[in-house]
Design a protein around this nucleic acid. Structure first.
Lengths: 349, 349
DNA sequence: GTTAGCACTCTAACGAGGCGAGTGCTAACA
DNA sequence: TGTTAGCACTCGCCTCGTTAGAGTGCTAAC
């Protein structure tokens, strides 16, 4: 059997109606609304076919139909294709969404939180955003300073001006000269290096070059190396998790508990971010419907993610989690708008 | 009417039974369990009195009784008094709770997260912990380093080894000598100063002392001053928010949504922390029952908080949020154990 | 002051019945 | 051959009445 033009129209009508009402939609409803004038009986026949083909489901014999994951997938693909076309006109529209314009925030953290909040408030779904991830991270600058006699603070600046600190306790006092030498050694050796390339061999070589006072220097080098290597886990900010309670199909204890846990533990969101980033070259926006989601606790949700670019090779992810019957149209626009706004903002600054 | 000895016993029996079962407790149950052998009829009479006095409530005419907020308050006060006595023996007990011993964590953040997780896992309630707050924060050390020609990174170390970074873009290149001078100026003037005391006057004086190159130096000083002043908002880590779904009286949409929001937004938790810190001199452990909680969304919960001390004047708060019928006994022990463990850990290091 | 006994109250659980939405199928129609 | 009208049927949901059980409040006796 084949998805002819009429079946497509009917399918889309069913899905749209369901998105509106949240209730199973019957044949009569469609027969009335639709521009192709058909009786409910005809619609019923077509619906039966659509059920056979797996696009829709009837919860029980005498209820209307609701979209299956496959149905949603069809709808979303359709929608994305349309968006692709419209993108140029849209871009030039004066947008009413300016309300969500992000005020200038001095700190990245605050900005990200604000974005998440804006996103959840605008869509009524749960939102998340990951701090930008440095793909090929290079070392830009290292500075050791003596804090107290036997305590050094190391400041490590990475490409993208991300800063790490490390306090190093040493066994014996270190004199200014040694400290200076150490600073030079570290900077000449490591600056511009990708973190992945800082191997044991490199570290060993540095220790060797240290010559005298090898003991204390080795101590410091090890501490610095460790600090560089330690990749902190991805910062993720969330907002509007409580929105899930607005959708009865997600608000039962078990599901809600799962989603809340995912939002609190962040572990699963981290997976989601990596998944998205690994696909980011393809398209920009990803839609996961139900089982498609790479996250266990979101099998009953739809997840929409997108990648934003802060700078060459520095990416982050924003995402929306909601019920399968989410307003995909609005979500796609919002998320598209927001990513481009983010991109602009970073490029400007 | 007066709360005589027998009434107290009965009241405590009711509350304990209710904590166990979570269901309204009837007169027969008490008459059987209790050591003071009384018939259910007598118990009923006493219960009627207790209702009049406001310690217990009957949900409807023919159900058992459940404790009121006032009843819980009585119970908790009783319990805290007992604890006070036992504290010495307890302290010496070999504790079975060693399972929750915190593994050595290199980073404060990780430690705090771990504590929160341990707390929620051990109690089956929702847990939170605030990062330590520096009451009278003093400046320990400042270091400016040149990153690029017109870009400086300032590292500011506060008492308690809390570190702040700030990247400063300047208008014209700065030479080594000026940088050195600036470093000395900042350190001699500011080291050991409480942040509250860094007034405009102090800053003005520094600018004046700068002499030549006043322009560039003023720029840097302002940036540093601003960075010092900017008090980041309290970091709060949470864990086990999903535990609330284990308690039907909290798991309905409205309540759950409220609690989840409080946990996600952190704003209300921040209030809670400040409230606790402001009382921290009194006792150590605070119990808020129902309406007593300083947080709107937790009117149906009980909240137990305690203060831990990282160092003189540096405090943080840990807290547990659960249903009113929480196992106060266990929670109090757990939280007491944990704070003292935290105190020890910090004092050691 | 305590207890036994009894009528009363209230909730939760169950099942029957009716309603309404919607289906699937058949037969007729263009 | 595709479309439609008509009709019997299914099924979830709501309401209502009934029942069982737990627990009370009160009275009268000890």
């Amino acid at each position: 059997m084949d998805l002819d033009e009429r079946k497509k129209k009917i399918l889309l009508a069913i899905i749209k109606t369901y998105l509106d009402t949240g209730e199973p939609v019957g044949s009569r409803t469609i027969s009335k609304i639709e521009d192709l004038n058909l009786s409910s009986a005809t619609i019923r026949n077509e619906m039966a076919d659509l059920v056979d083909m797996g696009y829709i489901i009837q919860p029980h014999t005498s209820a209307g139909r609701i979209p299956s994951d496959k149905g949603y997938r069809f709808y979303v693909d359709q929608l994305m294709a349309e968006k692709e076309q419209q993108v140029e006109e849209r871009e030039r529209e004066t947008d009413e969404m300016r309300g969500m314009l992000i005020e200038k925030a001095d700190k990245m953290e605050r900005l990200l939180k604000q974005v998440a909040r804006s996103l959840s408030a605008n869509t009524n779904y749960a939102a998340m955003i990951s701090a930008p991830r440095y793909n090929m991270n290079r070392l830009k600058f290292i500075q050791l300073s003596r804090m107290e006699a036997e305590r050094i603070v190391a400041v490590i600046v990475l490409e993208g001006n991300m800063i790490k600190n490390q306090i190093i306790d040493i066994d014996e006092p270190i004199d200014d000269e040694t400290l200076l030498k150490l600073n030079m050694l570290l900077n000449t050796t490591l600056n511009g290096m990708a973190i992945e390339d800082i191997s044991l061999a490199v570290i060993a070589k540095m220790k060797q070059q240290a010559g005298e006072q090898a003991g204390i220097i080795a101590e410091v080098i090890d501490a610095v190396a460790e600090s560089i290597k330690a990749d902190e886990d991805l910062e993720i900010y969330t907002s509007g998790a409580n929105n899930i309670f607005k959708y009865p199909e997600l608000a039962d204890n078990e599901r809600a508990s799962g989603i809340i846990t995912a939002f609190e533990e962040k572990k699963q969101l981290t997976d989601l971010v990596y998944e998205t980033l690994s696909h980011s070259d393809e398209k920009g926006i990803q839609v996961y419907i139900g089982e498609e989601a790479p996250v266990e606790n979101m099998k009953d949700c739809s997840v929409v993610t997108a990648t934003y670019e802060l700078d060459e090779g520095i990416h982050g992810t924003i995402g929306i989690i909601g019920p399968k019957r989410m307003d995909y149209d609005k979500v796609l626009s919002t998320i598209k708008k927001l990513t481009s706004e983010l991109d602009d903002m970073f490029k400007k600054s």
